[in-house]
């Protein structure tokens, strides 16, 4: 993040970079476990994979305390309004990761019951492929999101 280091212990950077850096380091997650992917999301937070390394092991049950919504699983037509409401309750800045094939595109269930891609309901920043994506994939998605936020690609 440091653009220039001054001679006597000063650290100079732009305001934007500093803000982005603070945003990426403590991205709290709203639990939005829906289906299979939610179990992998739990596994990501648990012992073997340890999401705490990235400063985001805090899964918040209340959307008002969360910055990031990981839509983990298939979104049904009945669930879509609920999802949107949870998204609206989150405070800005907020990001969305669409985890898994079903959340991203409807997956293999191209039928009457499912929303074919959660991006019909909320804006999505990162899509994580897989059915379900393993913990490594999810972590890669999260790091990608952090990179995007850091580089200023996503501005809110």
């Amino acid at each position: 993040m440091a653009h220039r280091s001054g001679p006597s212990g000063f650290l100079l950077t732009t305001y934007d970079t500093a803000v982005n850096w603070t945003r990426t380091r403590s991205m709290w997650t709203a639990t939005f476990g829906l289906a299979c992917c939610a179990i992998e999301m739990m596994a990501t937070g648990a012992a073997h994979n340890d999401l705490a390394r990235f400063g985001m092991e805090v899964f918040r049950a209340s959307p008002r305390q969360a910055d990031l919504m990981i839509v983990a699983g298939r979104v049904s037509q009945k669930m879509a309004p609920v999802l949107r409401q949870v998204y609206d309750q989150m405070s800005e800045p907020k990001w969305v990761i669409s985890m898994g094939a079903c959340a991203s595109t409807g997956g293999m269930f191209n039928n009457y019951a499912l929303v074919q891609g959660v991006d019909e309901v909320v804006p999505v920043d990162v899509y994580v492929p897989g059915c379900p994506p393993g913990p490594q994939s999810l972590m890669h998605g999260i790091l990608t999101l952090q990179d995007k936020v850091m580089s200023g690609e996503i501005t809110r």
């Binding site: 049904s76 039928n111 009457y112 019951a113």
Partner: peptide, 11 residues
């Protein structure tokens, strides 16, 4: 219930 209805029986 029904918030995860995926229509698997139709699929």
């Amino acid at each position: 219930i029904g918030y995860l209805h995926t229509g698997m029986e139709k699929t």
